[in-house]
Amino acid sequence: MTQHLTTDNIIDYLHGELDPAEDALVHSHLQACAPCRAEFERESSLTDALRAYAHAEERDLPGMVKAQLWQTIRTQRPSAAERLAALLRPAIAVPAAALLVLVTYFASPLGRPTAQLRTIDVMYYFEQHAAEQMKSPLADRNATSSMLETSEAAFTGSTTLPVRAAAVMDAVR
């Protein structure tokens, strides 16, 4: 670094705000350049002066601040936001509770009825019934095999439950 440092460079260096490479460059430049070192000393002394001033001017927290703080807290009115929140609390809490109950209900087995279960039961029933019919020497084989085909189609979900049930019933008839 052959040029002189800018004051801004020196201030950032003084505050440790340069990246490591820049910091190293400034550091080595200050070793070699008397005018820049003098400038650095001046900036440092300003910082020293500010710290000395702050130290000399340091004050204790007046006791009345703490007393008034607690007094204010005990006697203050709630802020507008707090009043609004208090006002809205039941209006928000009741629907929220209702929503929670509904979500809990539908997430639990109680809230999942039975559509799937009923389908399986009905199909299972008709398949078992058809199988029994097939064993019987007196059974109408056409009707029974048709019933089995229909029940298989229904089980694979190709139709809705009422339609499937109706189709199976028709086949039985």
Partner: peptide, 20 residues
Amino acid sequence: PLAVTPIEDYVEGQLSEPLS
């Protein structure tokens, strides 16, 4: 840089009032 360095003088002596 300033020709004089008044800050050092303030550090040593009458610091508070001028800086304040």
